[in-house]
Simulated assay, not measured.
Amino acid sequence: MKIVILNTGCANLLSVKLAIDRLGYDSKISCDILQIYNSDKIIIPGVGSMASVMNQLYQLNLIEIIKNITQPVLGICLGMQVLSMFSEESGGIKGLDIIPVNVSLLNTNGLSLPHTGWNKINFNIDHLLFKNINIKDRFYFVHSYAIPINKFTIASTFYGMEFTSVIQKNNFFGVQFHPEKSGLLGNRLLKNFLEI
Rank of each mutant, 00 (worst) to 15 (best):
I98E: 02
K28D: 00
K2E: 13
H178Y: 08
L6S: 04
K136C: 04
V101A: 12
Y159S: 04
V82L: 06
L60S: 15
M85H: 12
F123V: 02
N61P: 00
I43Q: 04
T116V: 15
I147C: 09
K181H: 03
I5Y: 07
I3H: 04
V142Y: 08
N124R: 15
G110R: 12
T116G: 00
P114W: 13
M54K: 12
L128V: 13
S87P: 02
K17R: 12
G75A: 07
D21A: 12
N12K: 05
E162I: 14
N109W: 03
I63P: 02
E88R: 06
S52T: 06
S156D: 09
T164P: 05
L194D: 00
I42P: 02
M50R: 00
F193R: 11
N61F: 09
I154D: 05
G92R: 08
K136D: 11
G174M: 07
M85L: 14
N124H: 12
C31L: 14
L189C: 04
F139V: 06
L189R: 02
Y140L: 10
F172C: 04
P114Q: 12
M54Y: 10
L78N: 02
R22H: 09
S144Y: 10
S84H: 03
I69P: 00
S165F: 09
M80P: 02
V101T: 04
Y159C: 06
L190I: 11
N55F: 08
M161K: 12
L129Y: 08
L184N: 07
P179C: 11
Y159K: 09
G110L: 12
F130C: 08
V175T: 05
E89M: 11
C77E: 03
T70G: 01
D21V: 13
